[in-house]
Structure formats: structure tokens, C-alpha cells
Design a binder for these strands. Sequence first.
DNA 1: AGCGCGGCTTTTC
DNA 2: CGAAAAGCCGCGC
Length: 106
Amino acid sequence: MKKRSFAEQVYNLTSQVPKGKVTTYGAIAKKLRRPQASRAVGRILGANPHPIVVPCHRVVKSDGGLGGYTSPRGIRMKIELLTGEGVEIGDGKIDLSRFLFRDFAL
DNA sequence: AGCGCGGCTTTTC
DNA sequence: CGAAAAGCCGCGC
């Protein structure tokens, strides 16, 4: 259980984000020792083969944007989910200063 | 503020 | 099996 692929670690960190908090693609990439793989993280989360254990909607862009969301409802559902968990979104942006979760168990 | 480019992994043919 | 394309970003100018 050590040679987990990059994707496995991405899902692992994302699943660690508690309700009411969010993380960023760049942050995850950095945690995995690949600060420039932010895009890869997005692709992986987009392919999210674990939609139940991996709340990819809790992952936003490094600038506070919501990013995208591959879902039947699209980015729309992502906003609804975050707001429903307690994350306040101002003008389509999130206050990372208040909701950015950075206590990952890496 | 907006645009374009770069670097990474995964998936599919 | 090998190669190619794509993708929910990040940063700089």
C-alpha cells in the first residue's frame, strides 16, 4: 500500500477534506511532490472513479475560483454542494483564507 | 484584467 | 504493447 499511483494519492487527499472546507488543485499537486502537475490533478479528479469517497466538489482553483466540474449539472451543482456544506461563495469565488483546508495527513 | 503557454498524469485506440 | 490525445490548472506578461 505504498506504491499508490499519483491518482490514488489525489483521491486520498481530496477525501480528507472535511465538510465546510476546500482545497486547491495546486495544493494537492504540491503535496504529492509535483507542484506543476496541477492540471493532471484536475484531469484525475475529473475522471473521479470514486464519486462517493472523493468529494471532488471540495476542490477549487488556487485563486478561489470554482474551476470546472464534470457532472450532469456541471459547475452549478458544485456551487450548490459547497454552499450546502457551509462554504460561503462570494461572486463565484471562495475565501480560501477561511475555507482552505491545509491539515492534510501526508 | 485577459490571454497564452507550460508541465503532469491518465485513459483510450 | 505502444503511441497519442485530453484535461475541473497555475503562472507570467
